[in-house]
């Protein structure tokens, strides 16, 4: 018997059952190799124990109201994630909507997931990456980003406006995985365990990449500062 911590592979489940969530027909993830880690699922529904007759769906059907209250609230998180990857507001909106269509289609199975939010983020990430690969997507163009000035902020923060805008640019220059980690940790405030789960990395790799990313941003900022001081 395989251990519960091992990553669950699609092919394994196909042999055993026709009803399991992870089988091709039901797997919500668009990428070719569905490799949802077992931790995604509540312990009760360990996929290695699934059999043909076991119906994974929850006993009750999720109503529209429930969906609205439990699933829709994560829409902003998903949008921000999509935007971090795609850099395009309109496309990110489309992606978010598409993800919710898929979540809606699986609404009765959502009960099986430990965290619907984590699951949805995986779907979003995969869909965005697929989009980048499939169509001839312009390389993450450095879009203009201007810090909104809040006139109630302390003076010093208003002066920082330009620096803050630069941070955006420097993040866009980071490699994809580091960008995602920054987004999930510094913007969304997710714990390392969740980030590791969503990005399918181990904990230490998350920490190391986060550190690298943060340092890279700081370095760029200081370079810019030095340049400006030299000019004076």
């Amino acid at each position: 018997m395989k251990s519960v911590n091992q990553k669950h592979e699609r092919s394994v489940c196909q042999q055993v059952t026709g009803h399991c969530l992870l089988v091709t027909a039901h797997c919500p993830l668009p990428t070719a190799n569905c490799q949802l880690p077992t931790s995604f699922f509540k312990p009760k529904y360990s996929p290695h124990l699934c059999n043909k007759n076991f119906n994974h769906s929850s006993p009750h059907r999720m109503t529209t109201e429930e969906f609205k209250n439990r699933v829709l609230p994560i829409k902003d998180k998903l949008f921000r994630l999509a935007h971090r990857i795609l850099n395009d507001t309109e496309e990110s909106e489309d992606v978010t909507q598409e993800i919710f269509y898929r979540l809606w289609a699986r609404r009765n199975e959502l009960e099986n997931y430990r965290s619907i939010e984590a699951f949805a983020m995986v779907m979003t990430k995969n869909l965005c990456l697929d989009k980048i690969k499939s169509k001839h997507h312009q390389k993450a163009e450095l879009t203009e980003w201007n810090a909104p000035v809040d006139y109630h902020s302390p003076q010093k923060l208003i002066e920082l406006k330009e620096d803050v805008s630069n941070v955006h640019r420097f993040i866009q220059l980071l490699p994809e995985q580091q960008r995602l980690i920054i987004q999930m940790r510094d913007v969304e405030g997710l714990e390392f365990e969740e980030i590791a789960e969503i990005l399918e990395m181990n904990l230490n790799a998350v920490r190391v990449n986060l550190s690298r990313a943060r340092k890279a941003i700081r370095e760029q900022m200081m370079k810019k500062h030095d340049y400006e001081y030299q000019r004076d």
Binding site: F79, R80, H83, T96, P148, L157, R218, M221, M222
Partner: peptide, 18 residues
């Protein structure tokens, strides 16, 4: 300042909504 700018940026990004 650089670090402050980073934190400032993240605060702004947190508010992005549909």
């Amino acid at each position: 300042k650089p670090v402050a700018a980073m934190f400032g940026y993240f605060e702004v990004e947190k508010e992005v909504k549909l």
